[in-house]
Each structure stands twice: as structure tokens, then as C-alpha cells.
């Protein structure tokens, strides 16, 4: 089975949160906003899939924090893995790329919210950068 046809799975460091994805995303998009950088310790890297295509094998330690007026962030309360961004009223969920079991066959597509990036690093991979959201309206 090639990487591109393999169903994706993932979870946190300790196994308290495990999930299966019924659909493959287009690819990985990074987020450089200050809130993601504080949540993740550096930039966030996310895939986006419809919420109803995510099936949880384990979610006993999954915790949610309302991080803004428009979204909640999901993480494992036992191991501290920062896993999800769930926008209010949206049909998709964003899942941390690093939480996916490798190999995924995915690539990074572009950088979003670079207007919020910090000074200590450079974006040097040549991918397109968006000052705000890189998603089509």
C-alpha cells in the first residue's frame, strides 16, 4: 500500500488520545500566530479534515481550552500534547501534523499568519507565506 493510499492515524505521546482519519487532507499548513506559538512552544503545523471523518479510539485524557472567542484548542491532559484547533461553527477540525503516525505521505503546502511570527527564526523553505489565513474564504 503506498503512503498516499494509507489511512492516517495519530495521537498523543502517552496514548490517552488516539484517532483514525477516514479522509486524507491536502497537506500540512503551518501557523505562526502568537497564540499557536505559545500553545505549541513554536509554530503550529496542522492538517484540516471534516470533523465527521475523525474517529477516536481513545479520548479519556482529551481536554479542551477555549483559547479565543472563535475557537477551542484540544490537548492531552496527561502528556501535554497539543493536538487540535476547533473553530466555532466550522465543519472542519485542524489536527496537529506531528501527532500523525508516520509515514503519512503528506507535505507542507504553505505558511499562514506569518504577520505574527517572532524574530528568532527565518522561514527558509521557499513555500508561500500568508500574513493571515491561507485558507480560501
Amino acid at each position: 500500500m503506498s503512503e498516499q493510499s494509507r489511512a492516517l492515524s495519530g495521537g498523543c505521546l502517552c496514548g490517552g488520545v488516539r484517532f483514525l482519519l477516514a479522509e486524507r487532507p491536502d497537506g500540512v499548513v503551518t501557523c505562526h500566530c502568537g497564540q499557536c506559538r505559545r500553545f505549541h512552544g513554536h509554530i503550529g503545523a496542522y492538517i484540516t479534515v471534516p470533523r465527521d471523518t475523525v474517529a477516536f479510539d481513545a479520548d479519556a485524557t482529551l481536554s479542551w481550552y477555549r483559547s479565543s472567542g472563535i475557537a477551542e484548542r484540544g490537548f492531552c491532559g496527561r502528556c501535554g500534547s497539543s493536538l487540535f484547533w476547533k473553530g466555532d461553527g466550522k465543519s472542519e477540525i485542524e489536527i496537529a501534523a506531528g501527532s500523525l503516525d508516520q509515514p503519512t505521505g503528506l507535505t507542507t503546502l504553505r505558511h499562514g499568519y506569518v504577520a505574527g511570527k517572532a524574530d528568532y527564526y527565518e522561514i527558509a523553505d521557499g513555500l508561500e507565506q500568508f500574513p493571515g489565513s491561507s485558507e480560501p474564504e
Partner: peptide, 30 residues
């Protein structure tokens, strides 16, 4: 680094464990 209120004045010194990096991104020519 992301938990600092202001990381201005800090620079990046090195990438470590690059032999374990994910396949889904490139480090780039930094």
C-alpha cells in the same frame, strides 16, 4: 521559545535530532 513573552534578542543556534525529522517538511536553507 514560544512561551516567552518576548523572544527578541534570542537567535537560533542549531537544529538537533535532524536524523529523526518528519518527512512532511523541509528545514530550508537557513
Amino acid at each position: 521559545a514560544g512561551s516567552l513573552d518576548d523572544a527578541s534578542g534570542l537567535r537560533v543556534e542549531r537544529h538537533i535530532f535532524v536524523d529523526h525529522k518528519g518527512a512532511y517538511y523541509d528545514i530550508g536553507d537557513d
